[in-house]
């Protein structure tokens, strides 16, 4: 028996005359990996924004572990255990790799951020300045944990742990984003084109990492243009076009669906990302 982690019903977002996300239904079970594919402008990223609270739906609901989370702020959703990466990469450019990933663990700070109403923020300021042993220990623990997370990327990030993120290669910035998301200890992870701009070796590496995360039981929603990777990783694939869900099912089945082929052909076979990569 599987429990449903995420469940979308009739989720809709309009921009002026354009319906970017059109009545999307989706159910994601615990430990499942669903890929969302579709031509450029299909509304995939907008859907992620709606799930993570960065944008508000015009209609429909988002449920997370049975709880209605529609319209909650991104801060709240992060605290609930939803982490995401961004398509174009949003690392904190002037922060070191270590600090970037530590921000990922922000919602897990307890000692320095006591959950006291009203004066909580002032306590946080005081504790940050005084730094009692409990706060120091917490910080130390998180720093060790960050190193463990970074070790998942082999020698890509560890040697650069103190470098500012702006100085990293594009691929490394993408990795920092994923490391940051993992530091949140997410219960739901949303990856928006994690391999965009990566070469084949790097893509394979990333595919291995996502497979590992899935094997560890993480629930993942993945946007990806590289079909090869989608086919290997996904339990199910959802195809979007012009905001609508046009197909859903196991990879092989979706791949042969005439509607899907039509959608991709209609917009030109190669997507922007793929031709750029």
């Amino acid at each position: 028996m599987s429990t449903t982690m995420l469940s979308l019903r009739g989720l809709t977002r309009r921009f002026g005359g354009l319906t970017a996300v059109d009545a999307i239904d989706l159910d994601l079970a615990k430990g499942e990996l669903i890929s969302i594919i579709g031509p450029n402008g299909a509304g995939k990223t907008t859907l992620f924004n709606l799930v993570t609270g960065l944008d508000l739906p015009d209609a429909g609901t988002v449920r997370f572990e049975g709880q209605d989370i529609t319209g909650l702020s991104p801060e709240r959703l992060a605290a609930e255990g939803i982490a995401r990466t961004f398509q174009l990469g949003r690392v904190f450019g002037n922060l070191s790799v270590m600090d970037n990933v530590l921000i990922g663990a922000h919602t897990r700070l307890r000692a320095v951020k006591p959950a006291v109403p009203l004066i909580g923020p002032l306590l946080e300021l005081g504790l940050a300045l005084l730094r009692p042993a409990s706060v120091k220990a917490e910080e130390e623990r998180l720093r060790e944990e960050v190193k463990v997370i970074l070790a998942r990327f082999g020698e890509r990030l560890l040697p650069r742990i103190d470098q500012p993120a702006y100085s990293l290669s594009y691929a490394n910035r993408r990795r920092v984003e994923i490391a940051r998301a993992l530091a949140l200890r997410p219960r739901l992870l949303l990856l928006d084109e994690p391999t965009a701009g990566m070469n084949p070796t790097e893509t394979t590496e990333m595919q291995g990492l996502v497979a590992e995360l899935k094997a560890e039981g993480l629930t993942i929603l993945l946007i990806e243009h590289k079909l090869e990777m989608v086919m290997r990783l996904s339990d199910r694939v959802i195809v979007m076009d012009e905001g609508k869900k046009i197909a859903e099912g196991p990879g092989e089945q979706v791949r042969g669906d005439p509607k899907v082929i039509e959608a991709y052909l209609g917009h030109g076979l190669t997507t922007k990302q793929e031709s750029a990569a």
């Binding site: 993570t52 960065l54 982490a83 450019g93 949140l184």
Partner: peptide, 10 residues
């Protein structure tokens, strides 16, 4: 550096 990403991390 990026208030959107910051919010997304709580």
């Amino acid at each position: 550096d990026d208030d959107i990403a910051a919010r997304a991390y709580g």
